[in-house]
Design a binder for these strands. Sequence first.
DNA 1: CCGAATCCAGCCGGATACTG
DNA 2: CAGTATCCGGCTGGATTCGG
Lengths: 133, 133
Amino acid sequence: MPKFEPIILDEDCAPRRVLELFSVKWTTMVLHSLHFNGGRCRTSALARSLPGCSKKMLTQTLREMERDGLIHRKVYPVVPPMVEYSLTPMGRLFIEPIEMLYAWGAKNDDALSKLRRRRKKHTASKAKAREAQ
Amino acid sequence: MPKFEPIILDEDCAPRRVLELFSVKWTTMVLHSLHFNGGRCRTSALARSLPGCSKKMLTQTLREMERDGLIHRKVYPVVPPMVEYSLTPMGRLFIEPIEMLYAWGAKNDDALSKLRRRRKKHTASKAKAREAQ
DNA sequence: CCGAATCCAGCCGGATACTG
DNA sequence: CAGTATCCGGCTGGATTCGG
């Protein structure tokens, strides 16, 4: 084997920063959904487009993304309330790599489907205990 | 705003599968490191290239990746022990999008550095408590 | 419809000690 | 050097309830 010092992925290098953003569970999916809706979307529609994301998780993700400047939140003063999220320029910056990644995934779907499932879905254990009671 | 039904990112679609893999903390970095070392690398070198990844996390990640068929593990019967990890064809499949993503990150480094920090590093709180004792 | 707040079981992941 | 085993504090994130 070649014997040379491997590159060191320092804690604050660009690759890691990108990865960190991509590894936050719902962020990129929200950006993707917004993009597909012309850059703007209201909460409930967003929720529908992300099956498996609890309301709490969605709100939390949206708050963080807003703080990070990836999306903009606009509240319409009507009843019932209506909130619309839209991409900021910073958020739009991420569309390109995300769509690239997704496109790659679509193209290699069958190869990817052969990946053995990782990390058991650790839910549905408490619900069972609850109903047993 | 346009009023049309947003795409639904079903739980088992290609985009999600890709994202899930990318969102597992150390996986892509390991693949990246292996790639940069010509596709093979021993444990300690891998560890050195991933500052911040504890030994436990590294081992765990490597085990999962091995199970998923992304890397191959070869043990050399010598003392002291020597183990070498290498990319499988499946693992190699992921190199392209990973490098794409990293390259994009490098190119947009300054824009990315303006992202407000997310999710406080939740460590170093126990160590302090310990030394206080 | 949109969200905040609370509760709390279970997981994550670091630290440590031990094997070959 | 490479890896396993155990302990355990803190955080994650679902469920539920309340409010505008």
